[in-house]
Simulated assay, not measured.
Amino acid sequence: MFTGSIVALITPMTKNGLIDWNSLKKLINYHVNNGTTAIVSVGTTGETATLNCREHYDIVMKTLEISDGRIPIIAGTGANSTAEAIALTSRFNDSGIVGCLTVTPYYNCPNQEGLYQHFKAIAESTELLQILYNVPMRTGCDILPSTVARLSEIKNIIGIKEATGNLNRVSKLRALINEKFLLLSGDDASALDFMQLGGQGVISVTANVAAKEMAQLCTLARTGKYTEAHYLNQRLMPLHHNLFIEPNPIPVKWACKALGLIETHTMRLPMTPLTKKGSQVIKQTLINVGLL
């Protein structure tokens, strides 16, 4: 359940900015029916930064309810305050989620010892499985392989979403950590290479609109069919790149709306709708890839 194509699910919203529960149900069914192995609920792509605490909890729990055991649910539970991250994580104890995705503390930029102590404290506060999330471009904070290796010795820290796009990290992590520790790509464009070097899957933005294709890509990679995997990946590459022509999740929400997966592509400030130029690019990309 922690390998293959795991979707970083968007949070659908109505025109007035409320959570669109009907579209959420449609999205979950789409992923169940198209081979996605797990859902990350309320991560970066799920707009956690503009949701309040009650909404955050409600979305995860509603996702659990709708999924009804058909697909594992991972909750985004990161914060730049250790106490806040522990409090958020504790709300999901005994909830039915299979684990947590916990981002490095953003803005305050702790050193490596601070990162170690932060994640150690969270893990020791719960029995929930923990996946570290490293995305320095957004957080200004990079957890190094040596620190990940220390954290891997804590029994319920089971893997990392490595979103640097730096493929050298795979071999460095593998050299320091046993093979049971999960290495998941957080960068769609380099995910196939990441898996070929020893990663077990991807937490994907692209999967929001190409769930079947991303599931196929991961299956091909995991069974060693790299020629076929590279062919499919080249077809998807424009999507991997163009879904980031404006800040995530602006383009992918527009794409989901274009494909009829959600009713509106509403964003909350400070995120704004996709520009006219951007919409033209995404529409043509969806056509070129064969999704529209």
Score class of each variant (00 low, 15 high):
A255F: 03
T11W: 06
P238K: 07
D187A: 09
S90A: 14
A121K: 15
T275Q: 09
P136E: 06
G260A: 13
M237A: 11
V42I: 14
A258D: 05
L182S: 13
N33Q: 14
L286I: 00
P105D: 09
E84T: 14
K155L: 10
V170W: 08
N166V: 13
A189M: 10
I66K: 08
I157M: 08
R222A: 15
L286S: 00
V98D: 14
A85T: 00
H240C: 08
T104Y: 04
S81H: 02
E127V: 12
L274R: 00
Q117C: 13
I97R: 03
G278R: 02
L292N: 06
W21F: 11
E246T: 02
N233E: 10
V209P: 04
T37M: 00
K62S: 07
A189C: 12
L184H: 03
K212P: 04
A8Y: 01
T272V: 13
K253P: 03
V289A: 04
L292R: 06
K15A: 12
A191S: 13
P136C: 12
N178C: 12
V40K: 07
I177W: 09
M61L: 10
A87G: 01
G224V: 01
I250Y: 00
V170N: 07
H118F: 15
C100G: 09
N108K: 06
Q280H: 12
A163I: 00
L9R: 01
E228V: 10
T11V: 10
G46Y: 02
L243G: 00
A8G: 11
A189K: 12
G278A: 02
K283M: 11
S146C: 14
L18Q: 15
Y133K: 04
L101I: 05
L184D: 05
K180C: 15
E246Y: 07
V170Q: 07
L132K: 09
A38K: 01
G140P: 03
N168G: 14
R150I: 02
S146G: 08
Y226S: 11
K161T: 04
